[in-house]
């Protein structure tokens, strides 16, 4: 009972965190888009990044304009505001961790390895907990460096 309540609380909390109920599964499974279509930096830069509203509106000026979530998106667009997306992954400043997406993409580590099966999620939830243990285990499995300086500097 308690765990069911807790689960409900967690789910509603993470759904409520985002200003718009963006559905990952609708974009990836139905519209056949790739993660990197919106998170452009994932293969080439340090940070995968969150897309600008201009990117959303490239399609949503014309597509599915009557859906309630898209209407909310258009409201941000008309006010010339970016959507204030909440990041759900990242390291605390106190962790002193420097993470770079690009080398991991070059090593062909799938997005789902660290972010879970986002393709089947509506609003993305934090499905994988990043700890130093999980990072090091993966580095060792893939014969990558386990020098502390690789991440902590």
């Amino acid at each position: 009972m308690h765990s069911a309540l807790l689960l409900l609380a967690v789910q509603t909390a993470s759904a409520a965190e985002q200003p718009i109920g963006f559905s990952h599964t609708a974009h990836i499974e139905k519209a056949s888009m790739q993660c990197t279509d919106c998170h452009e930096g994932a293969t080439s830069r340090d940070s995968a990044g969150l897309p600008s509203i201009r990117k959303c509106m490239l399609c949503h000026q014309f597509i599915a304009t009557d859906l309630p979530e898209v209407v909310r998106l258009s409201e941000y667009w008309e006010r010339k505001h970016e959507v204030p997306w909440e990041r759900i992954y990242g390291f605390a400043k106190t962790a002193a961790v420097q993470f770079r997406h690009a080398p991991h993409a070059r090593a062909e580590i799938a997005c789902s390895q660290c972010h879970g099966d986002v393709a089947s999620m509506t609003v993305a939830v934090k499905a994988v907990t990043h700890t130093m243990g999980s990072c090091i285990q993966c580095h060792r499995d893939n014969s990558a460096t386990d020098d502390c300086l690789a991440c902590h500097y």
């Binding site: 106190t94 962790a95 002193a96 020098d147 502390c148 300086l149 902590h152």
Partner: peptide, 11 residues
């Protein structure tokens, strides 16, 4: 470390 750097890990 292997590259001869004297490393300081803050945390």
């Amino acid at each position: 470390n292997a590259e001869g750097l004297n490393v300081q890990i803050y945390n």
